[in-house]
């Protein structure tokens, strides 16, 4: 920690840490090497204005900018992680949790907000990839389940943005069972004829991909996102051959019939708003409230 960070008030530090892209006035695009002005990149939802490369974006920032501006109600914020197995590898799970909470300013890897999207009340949730790789443990499962309960109680649709490596190893079988829990929650939503839009972003793999993320009434992906059950390295080790070009990218999944559509991040608000209105038989939005 530098002397400057030490003397900074803690509130400001937390603010700094919630940003998913490292600080600095200029940011280099990982895909085209263009040097981009940070403020402009933020305005562009972390999509490179030169090559349209979709960089990762923090969960809370994504949700706040996806929903209409104004007040949002957070769901499940009081649900906090525990360490039921007293899991320890090179570090203790408790310490890993504390470090992730400190660096992200979040308590766990899923954020759920209720609010309007182009005037239509919805619940939207997003995985925070910076929080232990967006991994799904008990808290993610419970918050997702409460998101569904809120949808059922208020008869609203659900949108989920996935960015995750899968189930959280440190909660072992309990994490695995969150796959059943989130899938069962979506079955409750489906019985109410409420739509679930799953937005798969880079990366969406493992236990999340094999549960809630692939169960959308609509499965939408951002361009070039890595999406799959097994990670490419595991597959490479198993089959011992070079993987095809573009393997497990959004475009590959679309071609193989796993996705409904690929949508640029900058168009997600409008497209999902329109699709939900069509599914719900609501009139089209005249003006984008955002």
């Amino acid at each position: 920690m530098s002397w400057f960070e030490k003397i900074m008030p803690s509130r400001i530090k937390t603010e700094r840490r919630t940003r998913s892209v490292p600080e600095g006035l200029w940011i280099k695009c990982g895909a085209c090497d263009a040097v981009l002005y940070r403020a402009e990149l933020e305005r562009n939802l972390y999509v490179c204005p030169k090559c349209s490369h979709h960089m990762r974006i923090g969960a809370r920032e994504r949700l706040v900018r996806f929903l209409d501006p104004g007040e949002h109600v957070e769901i499940g914020a009081g649900v906090m992680p525990e360490d039921p197995l007293r899991f320890r590898d090179s570090k203790r799970y408790r310490d890993r949790l504390a470090a992730a909470q400190k660096s992200t300013g979040e308590k766990d890897a899923l954020i759920v907000l209720a609010g309007p999207l182009q005037g239509l009340d919805i619940v939207a949730c997003a995985f925070e990839f910076q929080f232990l790789g967006g991994s799904m443990g008990s808290v993610v499962g419970e918050r997702f389940s409460r998101a569904v309960d809120h949808c059922v109680a208020h008869q609203t649709p659900l949108v989920c943005f996935s960015a995750t490596g899968g189930a959280r190893m440190q909660e072992a079988l309990i994490s695995l069972l969150q796959m059943a829990k989130t899938a069962a929650a979506l079955a409750r939503l489906a019985q109410q004829r409420l739509p679930f839009v799953s937005v798969l972003t880079d990366p969406t793999t493992g236990g999340v991909s094999a549960s809630l993320a692939m169960l959308g009434d609509l499965n939408i992906a951002e361009p070039r996102a890595l999406i799959g059950f097994a990670g490419p390295r595991v597959i490479q080790q198993t089959v011992r051959e070079t993987l095809p070009e573009g393997f497990q990218r959004s475009e590959f999944l679309l071609e193989h019939g796993a996705l409904d559509l690929i949508v640029d991040r900058r168009d997600l608000r409008e497209r999902i708003g329109a699709l939900l209105r069509l599914l719900l038989g609501a009139p089209g939005a005249a003006v984008d409230a955002g």
């Binding site: 914020a77 906090m80 039921p84 008990s138 808290v139 499962g141 309990i174 069972l177 969150q178 059943a180």
Partner: peptide, 12 residues
């Protein structure tokens, strides 16, 4: 299935 999970709940 809904009971799977171990967490602290501070929801009021």
């Amino acid at each position: 299935i809904a009971s799977f999970g171990v967490f602290t709940d501070l929801t009021e």
